[in-house]
């Protein structure tokens, strides 16, 4: 705790680096998972295959996955970035599928019956209606990513993990506690913010 108050500047720099890494990974992860999820949502067989594969990926221990990725990409930010993108896929895609499949059938029937093309039904009805659930997926993925991103400290990436792994190397408990605490606070804040966005979206839906 004392480290946080004594070195606020250092912690802030690492926290910002942490946010940057997680944010960038989530943007890339959404860019992959949303189209995948939308494609799978109306194809039950594709969906079960896709979510099965992503779920299996999700069960690989993060340290083991990171070790493999370091073999492929070397040290630095790339392996942890790729790991974050991969881990987020399951929760993001799953919530897109669940969100789209949960849309009120009557609204879809009306949309088709009134003459929306399949693409218009998706863009004007299904996605807006599924948005809260999709945002929920982003929220869960973001929290997990904030935790997993601390492993970046082990492979030479800036972020709050640096404090934890330095603490481990130097046998300084205060560093480990500071890094863990800062990451937890970050996760709680992000969770609260995205909950707010989710609620806004839900209210807008009516």
């Amino acid at each position: 705790m004392s480290y946080l108050t004594e070195h606020p500047g250092r912690v802030a720099v690492l926290a910002l680096a942490h946010i940057e890494l997680v944010g960038a990974a989530l943007i890339v992860a959404c860019a992959i998972a949303f189209p995948l999820g939308l494609f799978a949502a109306r194809r039950p067989r594709v969906a079960s295959w896709l979510l099965g594969a992503l779920g299996a990926l999700y069960t690989i221990p993060s340290l083991a996955l990171l070790a493999v990725l370091v073999q492929l990409f070397g040290l630095g930010p790339l392996p942890i970035f790729v790991a974050l993108v991969l881990y987020a896929q399951f929760m993001l895609a799953r919530n897109v599928v669940a969100g789209i499949n949960g849309v009120d059938r009557a609204q879809i029937d009306a949309a088709r019956g009134l003459g929306m093309s399949p693409r218009q039904v998706l863009a004007r009805v299904e996605v807006p209606q599924a948005l809260p659930v999709m945002i929920g997926g982003v929220r869960v993925a973001a929290i997990a990513a904030i935790a997993i991103a601390t492993l970046g400290g082990y492979v030479g990436t800036s972020g709050l993990g640096v404090l934890i792994f330095n603490g481990l190397t130097l046998h300084q408990l205060s560093l480990i506690v500071a890094g863990s605490l800062a990451a937890s606070i970050l996760a709680i804040v992000v969770d609260a913010l995205l909950r707010l966005v989710e609620r806004r979206a839900r209210n807008a839906l009516g």
Binding site: D104, R105, A106, Q107, I108, D109, A110, A111, G113, L114, R124, V125, P128, Q129, A204, L205, G206
Partner: peptide, 12 residues
């Protein structure tokens, strides 16, 4: 024109 029992007004 198409109107159904469940109405299906777009909630958003």
């Amino acid at each position: 024109g198409y109107a159904i029992q469940a109405v299906g007004l777009f909630g958003h």
